[in-house]
Amino acid sequence: MKARQNGRGSNDAPHGCANDSLSGRLLAKLMPLNPRASGTEGGMTVVSARSSEWVRPVTQQDPASAIIEIDRVSQVFQTSARKDHVALSDISLTIEEGAFVSILGPSGCGKSTLLYIVGGFVSPTSGAARMKGQAITGPGPDRGPVFQEFALFPWKTVLGNVMYGPRQQGVRAAEAEAQSRALIEMVGLKGYENFYPKELSGGMKQRVALARTLAYHPEVLLMDEPFGALDAHTRTRLQNDLLNIWERDRKTVLFVTHSVDEAVFLSDKVVMMSKSPGRIRQVIDIDLPRPRRRNELLLDPRYQKYVVDIERMFDESDQAGAPA
């Protein structure tokens, strides 16, 4: 495993197809990406459950209500003058409140793009994503992203980074600082409040990024291969810590990864995607007890079976060439 991955390698960089020249590149970054804006009228009707793409409610949970609905979303990028790249093709998915859902797939299957659509950073070519019934038109503090690249503000200290969100939300400085200090302690970085990101290791940076996002209390966490740039050891520790933090308030999490172990270990549900065009292959309920302990789970035959089954399914689709 590579200890450090370049974010560009494994992410389905949707902005790669934006205007090639630098002109207006900043503007493109400030706008939700929308290569073909025409005819994206979001259907008002609630989609009826169709086929296996529909995620069923999580077991042993209260009457679960849908928090995110992805309704027949397609995303086409214009790679050159004539060629189009279909990153996502007709994706429908519903995510229940409080569920930990992983999107699992090979690089280039559009899984990050799907996450960016939910985040409101990218506008889909057709179809619509909804948050609590409201069409998603742009980013908002109800959906907090955590990126593989950490994306911490290098000019701010750890505390400054974590305080950014609350301050933007209009929380008073003293209060925001108190909350932020508590969060920094929760992610295990007490004593590092006045450090700059450059002085921290990769794992610590990602802890800060998580705290920064949690600080503005998003209802959904959007995690884009958050541990992809970390070494194996750090990665496991962060997975454990993430689960511990998640157990406290069970926020809805949408977690993009290409690691089968990671997806099975963390999630209630694994959404398997296939490549070119990006489609949902299968949705698998992970029926393992919580709270999960790594050392117990690794010996659990059910866990092992999930991992093996999922890996086999990916192998089959590779051999078959074109996905089902």
Partner: peptide, 24 residues
């Protein structure tokens, strides 16, 4: 101009998600 054009996309996204307007 060069510096402003090459700002990392995800820094901007992080700030947007935290509720900052484009102008901010």
């Amino acid at each position: 101009y060069y510096g402003a054009s090459t700002v990392e996309q995800k820094l901007i996204w992080s700030a947007m998600a935290a509720g900052s307007s484009r102008y901010e």
